[in-house]
Simulated scan of single mutants.
Amino acid sequence: MGTLSDAFTEFLSRLRPSPGQIEQISKRRTRLNELLQRNWKPAKIIPIGSYARGTAVLPLRDVDQMVVLNRPGPEELAVDELLRDLLTQLRREYPEVSARVQNRSVGLHFIDFGLDVVPALERRQGGFRIPDAEARRWIYTDPIKHEELAKEKNRLTDGMAVDLVKTVKVWNGNRSVGLKSFHLEVMALRAIGQKATTFAQGLRDVLLAVSGTVGSPCGDPGLSGGRLDLYLDESRRRAVAGHCKNAADEMGLAIREDAGGRSSHAVARVRTLIGSPF
């Protein structure tokens, strides 16, 4: 068995879409963009979401496209009517695919992964407004700011940052930690500074940092004024902090085992910690 570094290299390769998946995503996006241009004539179409930021993990559930409309301000557009109109057009273009209105988008649900179409209006002050079907109103977002945060952290770490985010997402899902994916992503990215000496050390540092920040307010990187942490009560925050601290301690033990020549023990420890597909 190889070192802990070797195990992480193999693990991270399993989290990346294959060339065939990347080609399929590109083809579906191209077809979708062509029909959106033909039917809606949008000002622009922007790839958004975790796939665009490079932080999506497999199996891929959906790929998001934001359609910036050439239309009046939100006070002149009814949210439910707009989403129904988009649903009607997508069903006409994709009769063989299940489609439905979601809270802030219309989803096309293919067998392998979906496409989520998010209609948006550009704000003069910056950012965008997107529909919220449950609240029946327009809300502020700025996915470009979200992507900039990931890109900047990735630049500072020579590409390590997004892999660290994907790894903590896998851990969070496999161990039922209870953090929402985007909230965890933002906390992890904000915790990352310069490139760590090793990936294992970087992962330990991120887990330890999140254990200390999950109890604090977490604002939207898009500067919407909204908070990403409001779904957690105090009891759940303490439980999540404990999960993160225990995981950081386990990574520390694995790092020491690997340095001491007991790489098989280190890899087994991390496999137990992270779960499949490590």
Rank of each mutant, 00 (worst) to 15 (best):
L4S: 05
L4A: 07
S5L: 06
F8Y: 10
P19M: 01
P19N: 01
P19V: 00
G20C: 07
G20M: 06
Q21C: 12
Q24Y: 09
I25E: 05
I25V: 06
S26T: 08
S26G: 11
S26V: 03
R29G: 08
L32M: 10
L35Q: 12
P42D: 15
K44I: 00
I45Q: 08
I46L: 15
I46M: 10
P47W: 01
S50C: 06
Y51S: 12
Y51G: 09
Y51C: 10
R53H: 09
R53N: 12
V57Q: 12
L60I: 05
D64A: 10
V67H: 01
L69N: 08
P72T: 02
P74I: 00
L77D: 04
E81H: 13
E81K: 14
D85C: 13
T88H: 12
T88Y: 14
Q89R: 15
V97Y: 03
A99S: 11
Q102S: 11
N103D: 13
R104L: 07
R104T: 05
L108S: 04
L108A: 06
L108C: 08
I111E: 15
V117G: 01
V118P: 00
E122N: 12
Q125G: 13
G126I: 04
D132N: 12
E134L: 13
K145F: 15
H146A: 15
H146K: 11
H146N: 15
K151S: 13
R155P: 05
L156W: 10
V162T: 10
V162R: 11
L164H: 07
L164R: 05
T167Y: 08
V168L: 06
V170I: 12
N174Q: 14
S176H: 14
G178V: 02
S181C: 11
L184E: 00
L184V: 03
M187T: 03
M187I: 06
A188E: 00
I192T: 01
Q194S: 13
K195T: 08
A196L: 06
T197L: 14
T198Q: 07
Q201R: 14
G202F: 02
V206K: 00
L207Y: 04
A209P: 04
V210M: 00
V210A: 04
G212E: 04
G215N: 04
G215R: 02
P217H: 05
G219S: 12
D220A: 11
P221G: 05
L223N: 12
G225M: 01
G225K: 04
G226H: 09
A239V: 09
V240I: 14
G242M: 06
H243D: 11
C244W: 01
K245R: 15
N246S: 15
A248F: 05
A248W: 02
D249E: 14
E250T: 14
M251P: 07
G252R: 05
A259C: 11
G261S: 09
S263T: 05
S264G: 11
V267C: 03
V267R: 00
A268K: 08
R269L: 13
V270Q: 02
R271A: 14
R271T: 15
F278E: 01
